[in-house]
Protein backbone atom coordinates (compact mmCIF):
# COMPACT_ATOMS: atom_id res chain seq x y z
CA UNK A 1 0.00 0.00 0.00
CA UNK A 2 2.90 2.36 0.78
CA UNK A 3 4.19 1.85 -2.73
CA UNK A 4 0.81 2.68 -4.20
CA UNK A 5 0.42 5.86 -2.18
CA UNK A 6 3.92 6.94 -3.04
CA UNK A 7 3.28 6.31 -6.72
CA UNK A 8 0.02 8.22 -6.78
CA UNK A 9 1.55 11.12 -4.86
CA UNK A 10 4.47 11.27 -7.20
CA UNK A 11 2.18 11.16 -10.20
CA UNK A 12 0.09 13.98 -8.79
CA UNK A 13 3.02 16.22 -7.90
CA UNK A 14 4.84 15.64 -11.14
CA UNK A 15 1.63 15.98 -13.07
CA UNK A 16 0.78 19.36 -11.63
CA UNK A 17 4.24 20.61 -12.37
CA UNK A 18 4.41 19.17 -15.81
CA UNK A 19 4.99 21.56 -18.59
CA UNK A 20 4.33 19.21 -21.42
CA UNK A 21 0.95 19.64 -22.97
CA UNK A 22 0.21 16.37 -24.64
CA UNK A 23 -3.19 16.02 -26.24
CA UNK A 24 -6.03 14.12 -24.69
CA UNK A 25 -6.88 10.81 -26.25
CA UNK A 26 -8.25 7.34 -25.92
CA UNK A 27 -5.79 4.48 -25.78
CA UNK A 28 -6.20 0.73 -26.08
CA UNK A 29 -3.43 -1.69 -25.47
CA UNK A 30 -2.64 -5.37 -25.37
CA UNK A 31 0.03 -6.97 -23.24
CA UNK A 32 1.75 -10.34 -22.97
CA UNK A 33 4.58 -11.45 -20.77
CA UNK A 34 5.53 -13.31 -17.63
CA UNK A 35 3.65 -13.36 -14.34
CA UNK A 36 5.41 -14.59 -11.25
CA UNK A 37 3.26 -15.59 -8.27
CA UNK A 38 5.89 -14.05 -6.03
CA UNK A 39 3.75 -13.79 -2.93
CA UNK A 40 2.83 -17.49 -3.21
CA UNK A 41 6.08 -18.64 -4.67
CA UNK A 42 6.41 -21.89 -2.71
CA UNK A 43 2.84 -22.93 -3.38
CA UNK A 44 3.20 -22.20 -7.08
CA UNK A 45 6.47 -24.11 -7.33
CA UNK A 46 4.85 -27.08 -5.62
CA UNK A 47 1.94 -27.42 -8.01
CA UNK A 48 3.78 -26.21 -11.14
CA UNK A 49 6.73 -28.61 -10.97
CA UNK A 50 9.23 -26.09 -9.64
CA UNK A 51 8.06 -23.06 -11.61
CA UNK A 52 6.57 -20.06 -9.85
CA UNK A 53 4.95 -18.35 -12.82
CA UNK A 54 4.09 -18.38 -16.47
CA UNK A 55 2.51 -16.57 -19.36
CA UNK A 56 0.11 -13.74 -18.77
CA UNK A 57 -1.76 -11.67 -21.32
CA UNK A 58 -4.47 -9.10 -21.35
CA UNK A 59 -5.55 -5.72 -22.53
CA UNK A 60 -6.85 -2.38 -21.40
CA UNK A 61 -8.61 0.79 -22.23
CA UNK A 62 -7.18 4.13 -21.11
CA UNK A 63 -7.62 7.83 -21.40
CA UNK A 64 -4.86 10.41 -21.46
CA UNK A 65 -5.99 13.52 -19.69
CA UNK A 66 -3.62 15.83 -21.52
CA UNK A 67 -1.23 16.86 -18.77
CA UNK A 68 0.70 13.60 -18.51
CA UNK A 69 -1.89 12.01 -16.29
CA UNK A 70 -3.75 9.02 -17.54
CA UNK A 71 -6.37 6.64 -16.28
CA UNK A 72 -6.92 3.13 -17.51
CA UNK A 73 -8.85 -0.03 -16.85
CA UNK A 74 -7.33 -3.34 -17.75
CA UNK A 75 -7.62 -7.08 -17.44
CA UNK A 76 -5.04 -9.84 -17.40
CA UNK A 77 -5.28 -13.58 -17.54
CA UNK A 78 -2.79 -16.00 -16.07
CA UNK A 79 -3.69 -19.66 -16.59
CA UNK A 80 -1.34 -22.52 -15.90
CA UNK A 81 -1.68 -26.28 -15.67
CA UNK A 82 -0.07 -28.23 -12.86
CA UNK A 83 -0.97 -31.14 -10.64
CA UNK A 84 -2.15 -31.82 -7.14
CA UNK A 85 0.58 -32.69 -4.69
CA UNK A 86 1.16 -33.54 -1.07
CA UNK A 87 3.47 -31.53 1.15
CA UNK A 88 3.96 -32.60 4.73
CA UNK A 89 5.50 -29.35 5.97
CA UNK A 90 7.06 -26.22 4.48
CA UNK A 91 10.54 -27.74 4.47
CA UNK A 92 9.47 -31.17 3.26
CA UNK A 93 9.56 -32.71 -0.19
CA UNK A 94 6.77 -32.24 -2.68
CA UNK A 95 5.03 -35.48 -3.65
CA UNK A 96 3.38 -35.21 -7.02
CA UNK A 97 0.12 -37.12 -7.24
CA UNK A 98 -0.69 -36.82 -10.92
CA UNK A 99 -4.16 -35.31 -10.58
CA UNK A 100 -4.34 -32.49 -13.16
CA UNK A 101 -4.92 -28.99 -11.87
CA UNK A 102 -5.42 -25.60 -13.48
CA UNK A 103 -5.02 -22.27 -11.76
CA UNK A 104 -6.28 -18.99 -13.18
CA UNK A 105 -5.45 -15.55 -11.80
CA UNK A 106 -7.40 -12.74 -13.43
CA UNK A 107 -6.94 -9.20 -12.12
CA UNK A 108 -9.35 -6.50 -13.29
CA UNK A 109 -7.86 -3.19 -12.25
CA UNK A 110 -8.07 0.58 -12.64
CA UNK A 111 -4.87 2.60 -12.80
CA UNK A 112 -4.09 6.27 -12.33
CA UNK A 113 -0.66 7.19 -13.64
CA UNK A 114 1.62 9.77 -15.02
CA UNK A 115 3.58 9.76 -18.26
CA UNK A 116 6.82 11.63 -18.22
CA UNK A 117 7.80 13.45 -21.36
CA UNK A 118 4.51 12.80 -23.05
CA UNK A 119 4.87 13.25 -26.74
CA UNK A 120 8.51 12.18 -26.72
CA UNK A 121 9.69 9.12 -28.56
CA UNK A 122 10.57 7.44 -25.27
CA UNK A 123 8.13 8.13 -22.50
CA UNK A 124 8.37 6.45 -19.12
CA UNK A 125 5.36 6.24 -16.85
CA UNK A 126 4.37 5.20 -13.39
CA UNK A 127 1.02 4.34 -11.96
CA UNK A 128 -0.96 2.53 -9.38
CA UNK A 129 -4.46 1.59 -8.51
CA UNK A 130 -6.77 -1.16 -7.47
CA UNK A 131 -9.60 -3.40 -8.41
CA UNK A 132 -10.42 -7.05 -7.99
CA UNK A 133 -8.59 -10.27 -8.69
CA UNK A 134 -10.44 -13.44 -9.52
CA UNK A 135 -8.83 -16.77 -8.69
CA UNK A 136 -10.17 -19.97 -10.16
CA UNK A 137 -8.81 -23.40 -9.41
CA UNK A 138 -10.00 -26.64 -10.95
CA UNK A 139 -8.67 -30.12 -10.57
CA UNK A 140 -9.77 -33.56 -11.62
CA UNK A 141 -9.35 -36.47 -9.24
CA UNK A 142 -10.56 -39.90 -10.20
CA UNK A 143 -12.80 -38.57 -12.97
CA UNK A 144 -14.51 -35.92 -10.87
CA UNK A 145 -13.69 -32.27 -11.48
CA UNK A 146 -13.91 -29.75 -8.69
CA UNK A 147 -13.77 -26.04 -9.25
CA UNK A 148 -13.54 -23.16 -6.87
CA UNK A 149 -13.73 -19.47 -7.61
CA UNK A 150 -13.27 -16.40 -5.53
CA UNK A 151 -12.83 -12.71 -6.14
CA UNK A 152 -11.01 -10.40 -3.75
CA UNK A 153 -9.95 -6.79 -3.74
CA UNK A 154 -6.41 -6.13 -4.91
CA UNK A 155 -4.06 -3.29 -5.74
CA UNK A 156 -1.03 -2.71 -7.88
CA UNK A 157 1.84 -0.41 -8.70
CA UNK A 158 3.56 -0.28 -12.05
CA UNK A 159 6.32 1.34 -14.04
CA UNK A 160 6.72 1.26 -17.79
CA UNK A 161 7.94 2.92 -20.86
CA UNK A 162 6.25 3.73 -24.17
CA UNK A 163 8.38 3.86 -27.27
CA UNK A 164 7.02 5.67 -30.31
CA UNK A 165 5.05 8.80 -31.01
CA UNK A 166 2.45 7.77 -33.54
CA UNK A 167 -0.91 6.13 -33.13
CA UNK A 168 0.78 2.78 -32.79
CA UNK A 169 3.49 2.46 -30.19
CA UNK A 170 5.14 -0.23 -28.17
CA UNK A 171 6.25 -0.49 -24.62
CA UNK A 172 7.26 -2.56 -21.67
CA UNK A 173 5.82 -2.62 -18.20
CA UNK A 174 6.69 -4.09 -14.83
CA UNK A 175 4.03 -4.42 -12.21
CA UNK A 176 3.56 -5.60 -8.70
CA UNK A 177 0.10 -6.90 -7.78
CA UNK A 178 -1.08 -7.73 -4.29
CA UNK A 179 -4.26 -9.73 -3.73
CA UNK A 180 -4.50 -10.62 -0.09
CA UNK A 181 -6.68 -13.42 1.22
CA UNK A 182 -6.78 -15.12 -2.15
CA UNK A 183 -4.75 -18.01 -0.74
CA UNK A 184 -3.72 -19.62 2.49
CA UNK A 185 -7.02 -21.14 3.57
CA UNK A 186 -6.34 -24.64 2.28
CA UNK A 187 -4.20 -26.71 -0.03
CA UNK A 188 -0.47 -26.12 -0.31
CA UNK A 189 -0.85 -22.39 0.28
CA UNK A 190 -2.02 -23.19 3.81
CA UNK A 191 1.01 -25.44 4.35
CA UNK A 192 3.34 -22.66 3.22
CA UNK A 193 1.28 -19.99 4.97
CA UNK A 194 1.04 -17.91 1.80
CA UNK A 195 -2.14 -15.83 1.59
CA UNK A 196 -1.55 -13.57 -1.41
CA UNK A 197 -1.54 -14.84 -4.96
CA UNK A 198 -0.01 -11.64 -6.32
CA UNK A 199 3.50 -10.91 -7.47
CA UNK A 200 5.65 -9.30 -10.09
CA UNK A 201 5.01 -9.35 -13.79
CA UNK A 202 6.88 -8.10 -16.80
CA UNK A 203 5.07 -7.64 -20.08
CA UNK A 204 5.53 -6.21 -23.51
CA UNK A 205 2.87 -3.85 -24.73
CA UNK A 206 1.30 -2.84 -28.02
CA UNK A 207 -0.57 0.43 -27.76
CA UNK A 208 -2.94 2.23 -30.08
CA UNK A 209 -3.90 5.82 -29.49
CA UNK A 210 -6.97 7.29 -31.10
CA UNK A 211 -7.14 10.87 -32.25
CA UNK A 212 -3.42 11.44 -32.41
Amino acid sequence: MKTLVRSLLLASVVGSAATSAAAQGLVIDGVAGYQDLTRSRNSAKAIFDGKSGGLTYGGGLGFELGNGLFVSAWFRNFSKDGERVFVENPGGPVFRLGHPLNLKVQPLQATVGYRFASGSAVSPYIGGGGGVTRVEESSTVGGVTDKSRQTKGSFHALVGVVIGRGSLSFGAEAMYLSAKDTAGFGGVSAVYDENDIGGFSAVGKVRFRFGH
Binding site: V85, G187, V188
Partner: peptide
Protein backbone atom coordinates in the same frame (compact mmCIF):
# COMPACT_ATOMS: atom_id res chain seq x y z
CA UNK B 1 -8.40 -42.96 1.87
CA UNK B 2 -10.22 -41.08 -0.88
CA UNK B 3 -9.74 -37.78 0.90
CA UNK B 4 -6.06 -38.53 1.46
CA UNK B 5 -5.56 -39.58 -2.15
CA UNK B 6 -6.80 -36.22 -3.41
CA UNK B 7 -3.75 -34.49 -2.01
CA UNK B 8 -3.52 -30.73 -2.06
CA UNK B 9 -4.26 -28.19 -4.72
CA UNK B 10 -3.29 -24.54 -4.49
CA UNK B 11 -6.11 -23.63 -2.15
CA UNK B 12 -8.11 -26.84 -1.71
Amino acid sequence: PAEALKGLGFNH
